[in-house]
Amino acid sequence: MKVSMTINGRSVDADVEPRTLLVHFIRNDVGLTGTNVGCDTTNCGACTILMDGESVKSCTVLAVQADGASITTIEGLAEPDGPMHPMQEAFRENHALQCGYCTPGMVMAAVSLLQENPSPTEAEVREGLEGNLCRCTGYHNIVKAVLAAASAPGGPK
C-alpha cells in the first residue's frame, strides 16, 4: 500500500505492507535509526516521536495510519548543523542520559509535555513521563532537565 508523509520536513513516499509499524517504517524504510524499540506492549516509550506535533508511540501506529502526517523524530528536532533544541541542551547540561537508548523517545515526550503544559511542577513532569521508561538514570536528572528546559530563557519551544 502506498503511503506518503513528511518526516523531519522531507516528504517520503513508499509502498508498505499494511502491517508495517510506523517505527519500523522510520527505521528500516527511511533509515532514521535514532528512534528505538524497547518493548512490544506500548509501555516503554523508546519509540516516541511527534506526529502532527504530538507525542505518540510509533510502535503502536501503523505506517498506513500515518499516511499524510507530519512526523518529527529526534533527528529532526534541531537543524542538522544548528544549535541543539533547548530540551536536548537541558538533557546534556543535567546529565539526563546514560546509555542513551531511551533518550530520543524521552526527549520527544518531554517536548510534547511542555507544549501542553509549559510550566509544570515536578510532580506533573513525573506524571507526564509515565509512558517513558529509563533503566539508567533513576529519572532524577531527566525530571531536572525537563524542569530546567521549562524555565530556560525564552521558555519551552
Binding site: 508511540k57 515526550a109 510534547s112 517513558n132
Partner: peptide, 9 residues
C-alpha cells in the same frame, strides 16, 4: 487513561 502518548491516539 494510559499515558500522554496513548491519550494522543
Amino acid at each position: 487513561v494510559g499515558d500522554p502518548q496513548v491519550r494522543h491516539r
